[in-house]
Design a protein around this nucleic acid. Sequence first.
DNA 1: AGCACGCCGACT
DNA 2: GTCGGCGTGCTC
Length: 746
Amino acid sequence: MHRAQSERSSWGGKSYQNQSKAQPMDASDCVPYAVAVFCPLHQTFTYTGPPGLARGQRVRVAFGNRQAGGIITGSADSVPTNLRLKPIQQVPDTEPLLPESLCALAEWMARYYHAPIGEAYELCLPAAARPGLALPATRSPHSLTLTERGRALAPDQLKGAKRQQLVRQLQQHSTLSRDELKALDISKASADSLVRDELAAWQQESHVRPRPAPESNLTLSAAQQSVLTELQAGRAPQLLLGVTGSGKTELYIEWCRQILQQGRQCLILLPEIGLTPQMVARFSQRLGMPVEQLHSGMGDAARLRVWRDLAANKVPLVLGTRSSVLAPFADLGLIIVDEEHDGSYKQQDGVRYHARDVALWRAHQAACPILLGSATPALETLQNAVTGRYQRHDLPRRSDQGEVARSLLDLNRHPVAHGLSAPLVERMDDHLQHGRQVMLFLNRRGIAPSMICEACGTIQHCPNCSAYVTYHENPARLLCHHCGWSHRPPYPCEHCGETRLVPLGLGTAGLEQYLQQRWPDTTIWRIDRDRIRNQDDWARINSEVQAGQSGILLGTQMLAKGHDYPNVTLTGILDADSGLFSADFRAFERTAQLLTQVSGRAGRRRARAEILLQTRLPEHPLLNQFLRDDYSTLAQRLLDERQQADMPPFSHLALLRADHPEEETAWGFLHELSRILALPDGVQAVGPMPAMMSRRAGQYRMLWLLKATRRAPLHQALDSAVLTIARGMKIPSRLSWGVDVDPIEF
DNA sequence: AGCACGCCGACT
DNA sequence: GTCGGCGTGCTC
Ligand SMILES: [Zn+2]
Ligand SMILES: [Zn+2]
C-alpha cells in the first residue's frame, strides 16, 4: 500500500527508520549534522543521521513536539555536549535538492537581512518542497506546444474563438499540460484540431533545452545597437536609462539571445505579475522559442516544475517577479532587472529582501553580467553610477518622439467639477474634437472614495487599522485594503453613531460616470484592476487604444507601468500633490518617478503632446522643477538634498520592528532593547516611535530606527540586537519582532 | 512560529 | 470539582 510506505521513514529512496527494530542503525554509524529547521529562530539545530548526507539535502525532523522540514547546512562541527541529539526522521531525496549556490544565497540573506536562518533557507525552496516530504514526479506525460508555424501565427488570423484563445495561451505559456488545458476550459478536440493543422503538437515528457532562433527577426536602431555592444562588453553592474518607448525591451531580448546561444541561462525580473504574460509573449515570439515564467499567480506544482527544470538547465530563460530571484540556475549567464526602482521588489514580510539587491549579489557570485533598466532609477542606483560602481548607459528617445509641453493647473484659481478643473476640461474638449486620445491619471487615493458622516463630518476608519475605509460598489461594501475588513452598508458612524455615511471623492467609477455624461459619444477605457483581470481584457483594450480612435483612457498606477500609448496627446494628472505630503523621506523621489512615468506614456508619432498637472501647490519646487527638467537633473538635485540630510544613499538605515495588540507593550519591548544595547560608534538611533501606519489588523507597530554612514557598524549593531533579543530578553506573549535592513516603508 | 505546561476565574 | 483563558518557556 502506498499509505503504509509513506508512513515509514525513508531515505535515499529506500525504507529507513533510525530506531526501527526491523533495520537497526548502529549508533556509532550516526554522525551529527547542522540543520536549518523551518522556523523563525536565529540558529541551526544539530541532528544525527547516517554518514554521507550532504549540504543542501532536505530532511524532516522532530522539533519540539511536532514535525518540521529543514535543510542540512553541513556537518555539525561543535557538537553540543550534555544534549541528547534527535535523529533525522526522513531524507526524502537521494541528492541535495538545494544546489550550493542557493545554500550560499540563503546564508547570505540570513546574514545581510538578519533573518532567521531556517526562514532564509525555506524561502529558497519552492512551496511544494517545504514540508520535507517526497516530491511527486512533475510534468504530466503529454503537453501541448506550438510548432514553428504556430508560433509565427497572429492568433486573430485563425478561425474559431477557442482556437484563437488556445494559440494565444500557448504563445504566452509555451506549453500547456492536459490539466492546464482543462483548467482553461479548452477541450481536447480544439487542441487536436490545431495539431491536425500542424500549428501545435503533443510533446513527450522529457524535452531538450530549447534554443533561440539564431537570427534576430527585428532590427535594432543604430543607437540601440551601439548601446547593446557597450553592454555586452561591460563588466560591472550596468544601468540602462531608457525612457518608455526607447526600445529597452528589444535590447534585453537581443542580449538574451546572445547568452542563450552560449547555452547559458537568463533571468528577467519584472515588478508585477500583471506585466509577465505580455512580456512572455514578446520574448518567446522574438526569440522564436518557448520561455517560462515564475510568479505568485502560478500553482505550487507549476512552480515546482519550472524550478526543477531551471536547476537542470532545461529552461534557458525565465521571466518572473520578486521571488524568482531565488530560483536555482544551473548556468546563470545574465540577469536583467526591469523597472529596477519599483518598490514591489522589496518583500514586506518575513525575510525582507530586495530582489534587485539579491540579484546584484547573485550576479556577482555567478560572475555574470547584470543590467538594471529604468527610465527613473532609484537614487541609490543613480548614485552608484555616479561613483562608478555601476556603468551607466543612456538610451536616447526614439526619433518620432514629438515635443512635450508640461504645465501646472492651479486648483485654487480655477473652478473644479468632479475633480476636473475648467481649463483641463477645455483642453480635453479641444483634443477630443480633433479626434485625439486623452489620458487621465488618478493616484491611489483617488481610486476608491472614503466615507464621510453627513451628521458630524467624521471620515470613517477601519476598526482594526489606523487607515480610512474605502467604498466599493457592486456589491456595495465598506472595505479596508490593509486587513481585509469589510462591512455592508448601512454602517453607523464611528463618532456619532448615525447611519448617514456618504462617499467622499469620486473614485474611478464616479469619474467614469461623469465622463460618460459629459462626453457621451466618446469611448472611455478604464485601466485598473477592477476592469482588467486577465490577458484577454488587456489584449482587447490595448488593440482598441493602439488603433488610434479618439477616446479617454482613465487609469491608475497600472497606466504608469507596462504599455505606452503613442496616440495619446493630452495627459491629465488629476492630483499631482498626493505624494508631496508624506513624511517619508523618499516621497519626492517617488513622486518624481511617478510623474515621469505617467508623462512618458504619451506622445509619439511626432504629435505635440501636452501634460497638465492639477495642483493646489503651484509654487511647489518639485512640481516646478518637473516642468523644466528631465528626471536625471531632478534626481541629482534630490541626491544633493539627501547628502545634506545625511540620508540614503549617503547613509544606511535599518529598522527593528515590534507588533503587539497593546501599543505600550510594543513600545516597552523596543525601549528595553534600546536601554540594554550598547551601540557601536557611528550608529545613531531614533525612537522607538510608532510606524507611519501605527496600527494594522489590530496590531500596533513600533519602530526603532538605526542609521550609520558605514554598513559594518550597522550590521554589528543588528547582530547584537538579535542576539540580545533571542538570548537575553523575555519576549512578551503575542509580540512579533523583526529586522528590516534598507527599509522602504516606515 | 507552534505547542505544552501551569496558574487563576467561572460555570455545570 | 473542571473547563479554558493566556502568560512563559522551549525547540538539537
Ligand atoms: Zn483594516
Ligand atoms: Zn458621525
